[in-house]
Design a protein around this nucleic acid. Structure first.
Lengths: 212, 212
DNA sequence: GTGAAACTTGAACCGGCTTTCAACTTGCGA
DNA sequence: TCGCAAGTTGAAAGCCGGTTCAAGTTTCAC
C-alpha cells in the first residue's frame, strides 16, 4: 500500500464541475485519492488533515480544492471506489463455484483474503457509517441485495429449502453479510487466521441450515 | 431518552481520582453522562461539543473537567455503561430458555428489541470502533466469549453437534454475533420489522445448521 | 456553627485545521 | 508559435472548540 501500483479512477470522479479536463489533472486527482486512502486508513477520518493528504500526494494545499469541495467529499469518493474494489475482488470467486452453497463459501474466503490484504479499506468503509452514512448504507444495501438474489436463485434451483420467502431470504442475506463482516474484523484485521478454515466452518452451518 | 427516567452510574465512575465524593457530585456526574449520551447519540462524536453537553446537563463548562479528563474520557465511560446495559437487557431472556437453541433465539429477539428502543446506544457502541478502539474491542470480545461459552455448554449437553472444536465454536460465535448486529442495524435501526419474525427465521438456520 | 474540602463557574487562552484567493505556471489546440 | 484555459501554489484569513484556572459557592464532618 502507499507505494505500490495504484488504481485507475473507477467511478465518475468528484461530483461537480470539478472533474479534471486534462491528463495532468487526472494524474493529480489520482495522487490525491491514493494519498487520502493512506491517510484515512492510518489515522481515521477526524485525525486526518487535508494538509497531510496533500503532502503525501506531493501537491500544494490549494490543489485539493480544485478537485474536492471538502474533506467529506474525498471520503465519499473513496468509499465508492473501495466498495467497487470489494465487489470486483469477490466476483471471480463466485464464478468458479460448483453450486450455490459452494459459492457462498468461496465468496467468504475471498472476502476474508481481501480484508487481510486491505485492512485500511475495511476501516474506511466502517467509518463511513459516521462520516458518510448514505454511502455506507448504499454499500451494504447493495451487497445484501446481491446475496439475497443468489439465495433466491438457489432456492428456485432447489438447492435451498423452498419454504423461504423472498423476505426471509433478505433477512438471511443480512445475517450472512453481518457474519462475514465480523469474521473479517476478528480473524483477519484483529488477528490472523486461515481464511479457508473460517470459511469452511461457517459454510457448514449454512449448508446444513439452508439445505432443501 | 433525554427527559425520561435516567439510570444510576453502573461502573466505577470516571477513572482517576475524579470520582465524586459527595451526593451533589454524584448527581452532577449522572447529569453529564446522560447529556453526553444524548449529544453523542444525536450528533456523533466529532460533531458533539463539550459546551453542548454541559448546556444540556445544565452545568457550567468547567464542571465537565471535574469529572472527566477529556472528550474521549466521557465517551469511554459511556461505552462501558452501555455495554453493560445491553448485557443486562439480554440476560433475563436467556434465563427463560427451554434449551440452547431456544436461548439464542430469545437472545436475538431481546437484542433486537433493545436496538429498537435505543438506537442511539447502538450508534455509540459502533462509533467506539474509531473513538475508543480498545473499549469497542472489549465489548465484542466479551460478548463473543459469552456466546461461545453457551455453544460449548450446549455441545457438551448434546444439543449441538459433537464435531465442533472449541475453536470452531469461537468462529461460529463471531458469525452469530455479526449476524445479530447487522440484523439490528438493518431491521430495527434503519427500518422497523417484527423482531420475533427476524429472530425466528435466523434461528431456524441455526437450529438446522448446528443440530447434533 | 465552623472551617476545610468538594464542587461550580465562565471568561480567556490556545492551537489546529479547513477553506479562500490572487498571483503564477503549464500544456494543449489552432 | 501563441494565447487562453486548466491547473498549481502557499500564505493567511477565519473559525471552532477543547482545555485551563483563579475566584467564588456549597456541602458535610466534627
Amino acid at each position: 500500500m502507499g507505494a505500490g501500483v495504484e488504481n485507475e479512477v473507477h467511478s465518475s470522479p468528484a461530483s461537480d464541475g470539478k472533474a479534471p479536463r486534462t491528463a495532468r489533472g487526472e494524474r493529480t486527482l489520482r495522487k490525491i485519492l491514493d494519498a487520502a486512502r493512506d491517510e484515512f486508513g492510518e489515522r481515521g477520518f477526524s485525525d486526518s488533515s487535508i494538509v497531510a493528504i496533500t503532502q503525501r500526494a506531493g501537491v500544494a494545499l490549494g490543489t485539493f480544492y480544485t478537485y474536492f469541495d471538502s474533506k467529506e467529499a474525498v471520503f465519499q469518493a473513496l468509499v465508492k471506489d473501495m466498495s467497487e474494489q470489494v465487489r470486483d475482488h469477490v466476483a471471480p470467486a463466485l464464478r468458479n463455484a460448483q453450486n450455490a452453497m459452494d459459492g457462498e463459501r468461496r465468496a467468504l474466503e475471498s472476502f476474508l483474503q481481501f480484508a487481510r490484504e486491505h485492512r485500511d479499506v475495511y476501516r474506511i468503509i466502517d467509518e463511513a457509517e459516521f462520516v458518510e452514512p448514505a454511502a455506507y448504507r448504499e454499500h451494504y444495501e447493495t451487497t445484501a441485495a446481491r446475496i439475497a438474489g443468489r439465495l433466491a436463485a438457489a432456492r428456485d434451483k432447489g438447492e435451498v429449502a423452498a419454504g423461504y420467502s423472498d423476505k426471509d431470504l433478505e433477512v438471511l442475506a443480512w445475517a450472512i453479510m453481518g457474519a462475514n463482516v465480523f469474521l473479517g474484523l476478528k480473524f483477519e484485521v484483529w488477528s490472523s487466521a486461515d481464511p479457508g478454515h473460517i470459511a469452511e466452518v461457517t459454510s457448514r452451518l449454512l449448508r446444513n441450515g439452508l439445505a432443501a
